[in-house]
């Protein structure tokens, strides 16, 4: 097999390296096959500098109509697989048409690239950034090489961050008041709060707090909504009585969360909710869902 493949092997090896590849931070990404891989991490307005090296296969020359490198920001909707929507596309010409006989290196630089959206691997949607090197050729297909990189954008501390406080209940049955200390949480934040029982007429077995992610893709009649429960965190065991107040302290760091994405390029949104669930002895569930905004806070360390 290797032998056979070898026959159709491309005439050259293309490798894309980043100038600060050794020092740059990397993000660990879960790939579609379930394995994790490390990819370089960038944020918006960074310079993306590097080098493309083209190494012709031993004893071959590469004839080309030009070499270019593109930086693409793509959204891929899985129900429309194979169709990428590029929201960002930058090109740098690396070489004029000619032949490459020996290893050739092309430095490239995209300065202060606008990358407004974060990389995202969702259930129904993927947002990714790639560097794409194309060696254009006549009569035969172009030689293409991709290099993924990851983008995360940081948000400053929100200036307004109110707590979420609400009184809910079922008449003459259950009446509670809950409070989450903030409405906006960063990804390593801690949710602190409490639940205050004003009236309890049902036999509660336990209470938990769920973190749910709602990903909606498409628009209009083609909207797909996918909800995942990322965390189930038991807050209370047993039946409280009136007047009891139960503390909440939920560390978000163990969970794989992303910031809230609202209407990304009119293609998709990702929202987060806290779902407070009370379960009674007959396993009936009483719940109240509240949206929270997630954001990424620049880690100072």
């Amino acid at each position: 097999m290797n032998y056979l493949i070898g026959a159709f092997k491309p005439p050259c090896n293309i490798s894309i390296t980043f100038a600060d590849g050794r020092t740059r931070k990397q993000a660990s990404i879960k790939k579609e096959n379930g394995k994790t891989a490390m990819v370089p991490l960038f944020q918006s307005h960074e310079n993306i500098v590097g080098e493309v090296s083209i190494e012709p296969t031993q004893g071959k020359k590469v004839e080309h109509n030009g070499v270019k490198i593109e930086l693409l920001g793509q959204i891929e909707l899985y129900f429309d697989r194979g169709n990428f929507y590029d929201f960002t596309s930058l090109v740098r010409e690396l070489d004029v048409p000619g032949d490459i006989y020996e290893t050739k290196r092309y430095p490239f630089e995209f300065s202060s690239v606008e990358m407004p959206y974060e990389s995202y691997n969702g259930v129904n949607v993927r947002l990714r950034y790639i560097l794409k090197v194309t060696i254009s050729r006549n009569y035969v297909s172009n030689i293409v090489e991709y290099q993924d990189f990851w983008v995360r954008n940081y948000t400053p501390l929100p200036s307004i961050n109110n707590s979420i406080k609400m009184e809910v209940g079922i008449e003459d049955c259950l009446h509670i008041e809950f409070e989450y200390n903030k409405s906006k949480y960063h990804l390593k934040d801690v949710i602190v709060g409490k639940i205050y029982f004003l009236l309890v007429r049902i036999k509660i077995k336990n209470m938990e707090l769920e973190i749910r992610r709602r990903e909606s893709t498409g628009s209009g009649p083609n909207t797909y909504v996918e909800t995942e429960t990322l965390a189930k965190f038991e807050l209370m065991d047993g039946a409280p009585v009136r007047g009891e107040s139960i503390p909440i302290r939920l560390f978000l760091s163990p969970y794989e969360l992303t910031p809230t994405y609202r209407n990304i390029n009119n293609k998709f949104s990702v929202k987060y909710y806290l779902n407070l669930v009370l379960v009674d002895e007959e396993d009936r569930r009483y719940f109240k869902q509240q949206e929270i905004t997630m954001y990424r806070l620049l880690e100072t360390s």
């Binding site: 065991d237 009891e244 503390p247």
Partner: peptide
């Protein structure tokens, strides 16, 4: 002592 409020089941609490 505050966090332990989460256990409202008498025996377990």
């Amino acid at each position: 002592v505050e966090m332990c409020r989460g256990i409202q089941h008498p025996v377990r609490g």
